[in-house]
């Protein structure tokens, strides 16, 4: 474990908690893409099945359980508890255009053709594009609540920190996982446009307005 991976995990945890609290406190999921949250729940489910097969560390297990629990709690709040505030008209990204190609790619490009490994690979590829419905929804509505932009900032930051972690691990441990790195680069690039707006317009404005 290195400082970049630890701050990356904490940034990821912060994003997940910020979103969950935002929906819970405001009792509204306006501006939140339920589709992206379903994809994240799918990412964690397919990636953390190894909870049942291998024990890495207490930290690893605890974080996985928290991620999965928060992901499903968020999906529940969006589609059940605060369903009335879900903005389905703007959450229209065709997620099948993400899941199907990613599923196919996971079968073609992976480290090992075993069920757990293919599911892990699927989750890595899916995570890199899972935020697209959310970014698409914001571009359609043309705005995002400030708290939502903080959620996206920490979510984007986490994988950027992981990229530094992989550089660190390659240099000091000779470890590198090409699949995770390539997907992580794609994932972080998708946030660049948002990062630019977050930094340049985040200050002083109540709403982040993305030119549609």
């Amino acid at each position: 474990m290195n400082i970049f991976r630890l701050t990356g995990d904490l940034s990821h945890l912060a994003a997940i908690i910020i979103l969950l609290l935002k929906i819970w406190k405001t009792r509204s999921c306006a501006g939140i893409s339920g589709k992206s949250q379903i994809l994240f729940a799918l990412v964690f489910t397919s990636r953390y099945l190894d909870l049942l097969t291998s024990f890495i560390s207490l930290y690893n297990t605890t974080m996985k359980v928290i991620y999965i629990g928060c992901a499903y709690a968020t999906v529940y709040l969006i589609y059940a508890k605060f369903k009335a505030t879900y903005d389905g008209n703007h959450d229209t990204f065709r997620v099948e255009f993400l899941v199907v190609p990613v599923g196919g790619l996971a079968f073609l490009v992976n480290h090992d053709f075993s069920p757990l490994e293919i599911l892990w690979t699927f989750s890595i590829y899916l995570e890199s594009v899972a935020i697209l419905p959310q970014l698409f929804m914001i571009s359609k509505t043309g705005e995002a609540e400030t708290i939502t932009t903080h959620y996206l900032f920490f979510l984007g930051l986490y994988r950027a920190l992981y990229l530094i972690n992989w550089i660190w691990r390659f240099y000091f441990e000779g470890f590198f996982d090409m699949i995770a790195i390539v997907a992580g680069v794609v994932q972080t690039i998708l946030y660049c446009d948002f990062f630019y707006l977050y930094v340049t317009k985040g200050e002083g404005r109540s709403q982040l307005s993305i030119p549609t």
């Binding site: 890495i56 690893n60 991620y67 480290h111 757990l116 490994e117 972690n165 996982d177 995770a180």
Partner: peptide, 10 residues
Amino acid sequence: KADETTHDEL
């Protein structure tokens, strides 16, 4: 092979 498919990262 084994070590590559034990993923220690979240």
